[in-house]
């Protein structure tokens, strides 16, 4: 890494120093006298075009240096968006890409250079595993859903059963095709509120973070989000109790992505750290639930 950087710096120097010199040359020849002789003028023109050439070369080289592929020894972690704070704390100094688990799984299936996949539902990791794209998934964290309203609660929602009222509320929920939306429908079903999503005006979101901002800013009267997301927004969002018996089983699964000719030692070490006592402590501090130790 350091060697690569030094190399890039040398390359930049090799380019920028001659530019500075030739620019200075151009400036000097320009200022030498106000009415340049013919030969002076030719010199000036040459210097300017030389400077320009160097500038273009420098820009092209800078661009190519900036576009060098990430170094092979950094572990690339593809993780569900809800893990955005905790994963860099547990495994610092790596390359991270946070998005919806379905999007990440799709990207890995399309050949994205991920070393580790941390999914918000075992389903996605198992899908990759069944295709031979990653190791056997292990569950490393749990989550629950929280029913939230903006802190000022303009719609006056105090109980989740109010969602059964006809004509009801503006609700923000996960789309039925993403984990959050699937969990929300499971929870409503367990509460006998299966029709809540037809009795209210329901807006569907693919990303949990969109949902959180929409409720926090008062577009929606209420909605269902991950409990960990609620803990990150307690100043803006009010939690309304939901019976614990209705909670769906939300499990985060980790696997090491199988990549030909790539050493997976570092990736396995990251997973080991995730399930270590230290990792569990950090997950717990971030309000994730923990699976029983194996």
């Amino acid at each position: 890494m350091v060697a690569r950087r030094a190399q890039a710096v040398r390359l930049l120097h090799a380019v920028t120093v001659p530019i500075a010199l030739s620019l200075r040359g151009a400036a000097q020849s320009h200022h030498r006298n106000s009415v340049p002789s013919r030969s002076d003028r030719t010199h000036h023109l040459e210097a300017t075009s030389l400077a320009r050439l160097w500038l273009i070369l420098a820009l092209a080289l800078t661009a190519s240096v900036l576009m060098l592929p990430p170094l092979a020894d950094a572990t690339t972690i593809y993780a569900a968006s809800s893990l955005v704070k905790v994963v860099p704390a547990i495994a610092p100094g790596n390359t991270y890409s946070f998005a919806g688990s379905d999007t990440l799984a799709f990207q890995i299936e399309s050949g994205a250079p991920a070393d580790i996949f941390l999914a918000a539902a075992p389903l996605y990791a198992e899908r990759l595993h069944s295709k031979g794209l990653c190791t056997t998934p292990i569950v490393f964290a749990l989550n629950t859903l929280t029913f939230v309203a903006p802190v000022s609660n303009p719609a006056g929602i105090t109980r989740v059963q109010q969602l059964n009222r006809p004509g009801g509320f503006r609700l923000a929920v996960g789309s039925k095709h993403v984990p959050l939306g699937i969990f929300t429908r499971t929870l409503l079903g367990k509460l006998g509120l299966g029709r809540a999503l037809t009795k209210n005006t329901v807006s569907n979101y693919q990303k949990a973070s969109d949902l959180t901002s929409v409720i926090a800013l008062g577009s929606a009267d209420a909605g269902f989000i991950y409990t960990t997301d609620w803990y990150a927004n307690t100043t803006r969002l009010l939690a309304i109790p939901v019976p614990a018996s209705a909670q769906p089983l939300i499990r985060y699964a980790a696997c090491v992505v199988t990549r030909p000719n790539v050493d997976s030692t570092a990736a396995h070490a990251v997973i080991a750290r995730l399930v270590s006592p230290k990792g569990r402590q950090l997950l717990s501090n971030a309000h994730f639930g923990l699976p029983p130790t194996t």
């Binding site: 379905d102 503006r170 923000a172 789309s175 095709h177 993403v178 005006t201 329901v202 807006s203 569907n204 979101y205 693919q206 969109d210 901002s213 929409v214 577009s219 929606a220």
Partner: peptide, 25 residues
């Protein structure tokens, strides 16, 4: 549109929002 108007089927779900929703299906 997604953040301000939401993605409510038959009400505020426009074609681009439908594309995004269909990506998961």
């Amino acid at each position: 549109t997604l953040l301000f108007a939401g993605s409510v089927a038959r009400l505020t779900e426009t074609l681009p929002l439908a594309v995004y929703a269909q990506l998961d299906v």
